[in-house]
Each structure stands twice: as C-alpha cells, then as structure tokens.
Amino acid sequence: MNIRHKIAISITASLFFVSQLAHAQWNIPEDSKTLKAPKPVSAESVIAGKALYNTNCASCHGQPGENNAIALSPKPTDLGSSEFQARSTEGSVYFQVSEGMGTMPSFKTSLKDDECWQLAQYIRSFSAEGAVDLSSQSKDLDLRLDLTSKEHKIIAVAYDKGASVEGVKVAFFIKRYFGNLPIGVSKTNANGFAQAQFPTDIPGADTLGTTEVIVKFAEEDLYGKKIITEKVAWGKPFKFINPLDDNHLWASRANTPTWLLLSYLGVVGGVWLTILWVVGQILKIRTYGKWH
C-alpha cells in the first residue's frame, strides 16, 4: 500500500463519518483524475467490466443510461447519464469505485485492481471518448445441447459454421419460480464441449420432477444471445399438498377432523336420543291413561 492509498483511506474514512452528519461530496484528488489504466481500453476489458458491473453494481445503480437505480438516499447515480460522464474520467471513476463514499461501498478489498479498472473502462464506454466498438470482436456462435439422462449431465457444444469453438464460457441455469438458478459456468474444451452437473436436490414442478434447463453464452456481448431451454425430468418429484385439503380445525366443513365430528355427533346424538326417549315416555303415560 503506497502513501497515496493511505491518504485516500484516511480521506474516505473521514468522509464516511462526515457523511453520517450531512450529505458529503466526492473529494477526488487531482492526480487521480488524470490517472490512466495500466492496460488501454479494449473490447475485452469493457465486456469483462460489464459482467463485473452486473454482479456488483446493478443492484443499486440499475442499468447505465436507464435511470433505474433503487431508491436510496442519496440516490445512486445513473452512471450512463451525460451529466455524470461530463465530469468523469477513467481515473476519477476508478477512484470512486475503489474508495467508495457513504452508502457507495469501497470495492478495493473485494475486487482486484485490474477489475476496478475494467469497471471504470466499462462505465466510461458510455461517453464519447471512452466508447469502444464491440462488433469487431464479437461473432455469433451456435449452441447445441446434449443431455445424458443417466448421469444428469448437461453438455453444451459451441460451434461456428459447423466447427467447434474452444474457450467459450457457457452458463447453465435451472428455471425456478422467481428466476433462473445458476448451476455453473464452464469453458468449452478443445472439442467445443462445456458441461455442468444437474444438482440432486432440485424439486421439480410436478410429480414427474419436471424441470427446465437453460443454457446460454456467459459473454453474450461476444458470442450472441443464443438461449437453449430443454425440459428434463431430473428434479425431485413434487406433490403439492393444499393445507385446506386435509382434515383440520380451520378447514371447510367437508374436512372436519374425524375425532371432532365423531365427538360432536356422538354427544349431540346421545342427548337427543334421550330427549326422544322422554317424549316416548310421555306417550306411554298417555296410552296408559287411555286403557285404565
């Protein structure tokens, strides 16, 4: 850790405390603003930055340029906005990401230094000077699935015009009620094969254990948005039990607990039989009087 970092830490630390009292301002050192990334911006670095952004930042900031940050106070800046881009440089964004301020976390401990730079380059790619043409790098690949029903393995093959492609990241998911459950990302091997193991503890949607497997390229910007879904009966069979269907105190009258129904009918029946018996006795008194 160099002296600059130490200063920066003490500045952010004091800023943090100040921010508890009042809404603080970013205090970006002049030399940070002019700082440049060790590696110049490239399609790879922007794509890597985008992936990092989606996992680490989108939950607060939303998508750049779409002004859909979550409601915090202060509101997380829309990092694609021209207002923000106008006052930023690669170096200033790198500083803000690594140091943080107030609600904005510091990422220098959780992300590597070059990842922070990739993030800065991705964010700056929304400005005129930081923009990068991704189309030169990307090519649409094809994807095919092979399922081994015995071992529950999902095998994806990436190929380009019939020839398999090596080193492409493929992401595997299982469709769930509220979203897709990631079960792994793996790179295609020399034969263009990437594979993932279907977990053993996934409940299916029905008694057959039906689930839906989703496979796509992890880096959609590079290889296209191809998605393959396939239904497999690999989940644990699932039977929905409606709590109202059983015999319960709270259930409908058709589902009265047996013990309760029997007690009720038994007691009421016994009492009313006795009442009827007494009515019979009255009739007995009556017939007796008639014949005597």
Partner: peptide, 12 residues
C-alpha cells in the same frame, strides 16, 4: 296426556 294419577303413571 290422559293423566289419571295411577302409580304406574307416576313411576314413568
């Protein structure tokens, strides 16, 4: 109820 006050009626 045809009450005649016999023992039997009282018993019932």
């Amino acid at each position: 109820f045809n009450w005649i006050g016999d023992r039997e009626q009282y018993r019932i």
